[in-house]
Design a binder for these strands. Structure first.
Lengths: 351, 351
DNA sequence: TCCGACTCGGGAACCGGTTGCCGTCGTGTT
DNA sequence: AACACGACGGCAACCGGTTCCCGAGTCGGA
């Protein structure tokens, strides 16, 4: 009472050949498609293939040089909305270009990252995409540079997607978005509403994404001849909980401010809840803005004014430029623009 | 002016052997670790390995039977918060168990799914995990059953994670969570507050996750001797936009209700915004509840009462049970429990 | 001093495919 | 009828590893 697949297990090309009464090369040719094979033979082979439910071992094909190419991406945490969108872009584009997609999350552990990249070199991945911000320390550059060289020497390619670029000369493709410019525009918008004391809920001080946004915050002030009170710059990380805690502390501390700019929408969400808990109305008493334009920003109450970042596009571009390059093409460095999305959480300063 | 890695490119084990003046077998043994090798030889080999910056080709190792095992997961859209959490659980557990993780998103296209599974069979993946709900049609069962058989015959395993189970006898591991039970408890909670007309914003009618939640909604009513007005059951999909649209339509239509239960938190978020836009207070005028307990549920205003689903645990369990099984072990079917998280969006019916 | 055991390393077969090369057969041409 | 040529298909080498099997040294003990 066996199914048509006998008891199969995995069958090899030689099993198929034997059953069809031909040689393994012929089977390979039939399956390959283009080589001339008589239709009688083709039929016998195809029949044997179906009988045995045979599929060629992709790993063996890869060794022989005709495998499905593979691409890997590494991120800290797939549950972060912006990371998830980048991942989505990467995966879509990889699929469109016929690549398989390996994924690894590091949960912030750099050793995982290094180990995984080494593993990808062994897998002969076409490219490895590092997704998401990072601290820009000498140690980071050193380590990342090493990974880049290592991949390059194996014919692969390292891509930094939303990550600090290395110095010149590193064999790396960099796709970034404009943190400073976006934050500048956003904060300028807030200041234009008459606010003077704008609380900034930033990320980790050495994190480049956080730094860029903070620079934009400062630059927007200075462009109006203002020098922001250092006490208004608070640092945490990019989580909802950090936003909540930072906001609560600022309120308890009696800090004076009429607007809050959070480094991410997640942080803004936590901050918003803390403001509500303190009985403050947004934007009546305090204006609030975020950064990232995650889908949920619209459903916060009030709808969050924020900066739109083309995360998915970022991921798509990362794989397109990485896979599209030839050995001679120069190292690319793309910088994507962002724009402010005005919703309801920022209001003119009430007299 | 070359780096220590010569100009390398990819070097083979034979290159290393030649440089160290030994045979390829010896290099393999040195790298393998356990076989007795004199320390002089070991040193020479290691030096050659470093000089050439050699890494064994993982695909070739796989063909020889000593590769890193691989596991694949398929989901509709990685940007959905609950999918992302399942993915996170899968990835974490896979990494813990030393597996590589391939990922594919289908964007609802079943052909992608079928093709990808076939590809995974060719890759000799240890297991393929299908993540997220689906329509439970005869066509679905037929197709999924075929994938299960195909994988099983290749020594792999299909895992349904939050997906409708097939009939008995299919070589499948199923990990589900209790949609009906969770919805029952949630709706019972709402009814206990005195509400009588509870609007249900459901998903696609043939989608099993949506069906389960709807059954829970109905069962909770009947347990109190109520028969819900069919006009209160609205169907869309699991997106924020669907929730927004459905809610607006219900309001415009003049439907009477004092509470809303949404099939997911995303839907609830859209509905909440629509309620606000209509000038209704939640929970003053209307109570609202969601399902999934995504992180953002806390930051909606009011904080959303919802049902917690252990998505990450679900993903972890999926890989653990799939990889932990022996050929003789029975097909497992796990059903995880859920629980209501009471926050601020449901209030007693005001007289 | 001779023998056995143990250590070390090489040759070759193997994993499961692909492909270059060449021989055979059938057919059409002169 | 001889010859050329194109269509087919098998052999064997190759991709880049691992591992079985066996032979060559070396060392210690009888």
């Amino acid at each position: 009472m066996t199914r048509k697949s006998e008891d199969a297990g995995r069958s090899t090309i030689r099993d198929v050949a034997a059953r069809a009464g031909v040689s393994a090369s012929t089977v390979s040719r039939v399956l390959g498609g283009v080589y001339p094979v008589s239709s009688a033979t083709r039929t016998r082979v195809m029949r044997a293939v179906r009988d045995l439910d045979y599929v060629a071992d992709a790993r063996a094909k890869a060794v022989a040089g005709v495998g499905t190419p593979t691409l890997a991406f590494v991120l800290e945490d797939i549950t972060g909305p912006s990371f998830a969108h980048m991942a989505h872009g990467v995966e879509r584009e990889a699929r469109r270009l016929g690549h398989l997609c390996l994924v690894c999350t590091t949960e912030g552990d750099v050793q995982h990252e290094v180990d995984f990249v080494e593993m990808m070199r062994a897998q002969r991945a076409a490219a490895v995409i590092l997704v998401g911000g990072s601290a820009d320390t000498p140690e980071y550059r050193e380590r990342t540079r090493r990974m880049a060289d290592s991949l390059a020497s194996a014919g692969s390619r390292l891509v930094l997607c939303g990550r600090p670029p290395l110095g010149p000369g590193a064999p790396v493709t960099v796709i970034e978005y404009d943190n400073e410019g976006g934050a500048y525009a956003l904060v300028a918008h807030v200041l234009a509403q008459g606010h003077q004391r704008v609380l900034f809920l930033g990320g980790k001080p050495d994190h480049t994404t956080a730094q860029g946004r903070e620079r934009g915050y400062l630059a927007a002030h200075r462009a109006r001849g203002l020098e922001p009170d250092p006490a208004l710059l608070r640092h945490g990380d990019f989580t909802r909980d950090a936003g909540h805690r930072l906001m609560r502390e600022a309120i308890e501390k009696g800090l004076e401010f009429t607007a809050v700019v959070a480094a991410t929408d997640m942080v803004a969400a936590g901050a918003l809840t803390a403001l509500h808990e303190a009985g403050l109305d947004v934007p009546g008493d305090v204006s609030l803005a975020g950064y990232d334009d995650i889908p949920f920003a619209r459903d916060l109450h009030p709808a969050l004014t924020t900066v739109h970042v083309p995360y998915e596009e970022l991921g798509r571009l990362a794989v397109r430029t990485a896979l599209g390059r030839t050995p001679e093409s120069p190292d690319e460095h793309l910088l994507l623009g962002t724009h402010v999305v005005v919703r309801d959480s920022v209001a003119p300063l009430s007299a």
